[in-house]
Amino acid sequence: MQQADLGAPGDLDGSGLRVAIVQARFNAPITGQLAESCFAELHALGVAPADVRHVTVPGALEIGVALAALAETDDYDALIALGCIIRGETYHFELVANESGAAVTRVGLDHGVPIANAVLTVENEQQAWARAADKGRDAARVAVEMANLLESLR
């Protein structure tokens, strides 16, 4: 049995891939930065702008429903979830973080579609800004790599 090099990136050729992005509008300046860097990286990886669909939802809890609707169409090779949950003074942070993460995972497993989860869960706005650009790029790379991997496994 051949062992994979865990340090080597997978196939990052996005040519011909169709990708949908679901972006939460809550904390819009931060999620906007996530989206901007995600779009730029998708383009750099060869995903045509015409092959990227972008939808927005009110907040992180609504991301799962939109992802499920997109996954049901079978029109996309990968999906991307973009959001930002900043800890507040109440338990609400844990609820939103846990439930939105669970929804993203469930949609991916239920529909067999790769989903790059770039919903930031941070302690404060400073942490969110420090991560937004990198996580947007990472999400694009994960989406392309996993779409290509799943295609090769099928």
Rank of each mutant, 00 (worst) to 15 (best):
P49D: 12
P49V: 13
P49M: 10
P49L: 10
P49T: 11
A50M: 08
A50Q: 08
A50E: 13
A50W: 04
D51N: 13
D51G: 13
D51Y: 05
D51K: 11
D51I: 10
D51V: 12
V52Q: 04
V52P: 01
V52T: 07
V52S: 04
R53E: 14
R53D: 13
R53Q: 10
R53I: 15
R53Y: 12
R53L: 15
R53K: 08
H54K: 11
H54V: 14
H54S: 08
H54T: 14
H54G: 07
V55L: 15
V55H: 12
T56D: 12
V57C: 07
P58L: 15
P58C: 13
P58D: 09
P58M: 11
P58G: 11
G59K: 03
A60Q: 03
A60T: 06
A60F: 01
L61R: 06
L61Y: 04
L61V: 08
E62R: 08
E62Q: 15
E62K: 09
I63H: 00
I63T: 05
I63P: 00
G64F: 00
G64K: 02
G64E: 01
G64H: 01
V65F: 13
A66E: 04
A66P: 02
A66I: 07
L67P: 00
L67K: 00
L67F: 00
L67C: 05
A68I: 09
A68V: 07
A68F: 05
L70H: 01
A71D: 05
A71L: 08
E72A: 11
E72M: 12
E72W: 04
E72G: 12
E72L: 13
T73G: 14
T73F: 04
D74N: 12
D74L: 13
D75G: 09
D75S: 11
D75Q: 13
Y76P: 02
Y76D: 03
Y76C: 07
Y76E: 05
D77Q: 11
D77M: 08
D77I: 06
A78N: 04
A78K: 01
L79T: 02
L79S: 02
L82N: 02
L82F: 04
L82Q: 02
L82W: 01
L82G: 02
G83H: 03
G83W: 00
G83S: 08
I85L: 11
I85H: 00
R87N: 07
R87Y: 04
R87D: 06
R87I: 09
R87C: 09
G88M: 07
E89V: 14
E89D: 15
T90K: 13
T90I: 13
T90C: 08
T90N: 14
Y91I: 09
Y91N: 13
Y91Q: 14
Y91H: 10
H92C: 10
F93M: 10
F93L: 08
F93A: 07
E94T: 11
E94R: 10
E94I: 07
E94K: 07
E94L: 15
L95M: 11
L95I: 13
V96N: 01
V96T: 04
V96A: 03
V96E: 01
V96R: 00
V96K: 01
V96Q: 02
A97D: 06
N98S: 15
